[in-house]
Amino acid sequence: MSTVICPRCAYETVDHVATSPVPGVWDVLQCGRCLYMWRTTEPERRTRRDAYPEAFRLTPEDIAAAQEVPAIPPLRTGR
């Protein structure tokens, strides 16, 4: 597991989320930064950094710039 990095943002901390009910078939992993989630048996285009499409990759700048939707409204006052 130590060699696994996030296919989407290349972050090196990956969490284990779930394992297959049939033991040893697959695991579900999640990036600790961009929260991308994948199953280890998915095609390489979804699971390997070097095969992950450019169009879907995220950089730390993309993550920092992510817009808030919907915007958090001001708290009501005077209640």
Binding site: V17, Q30, C34, L35, R45, P53, F56
Partner: peptide
């Protein structure tokens, strides 16, 4: 309350961020 224990979750499209 673990959703993975109840639902066989899966991905739809290549670029989806998850299930």
């Amino acid at each position: 309350a673990d959703l993975f224990q109840v639902l066989p979750l899966f991905r739809l499209n290549d670029g989806d961020g998850g299930f």
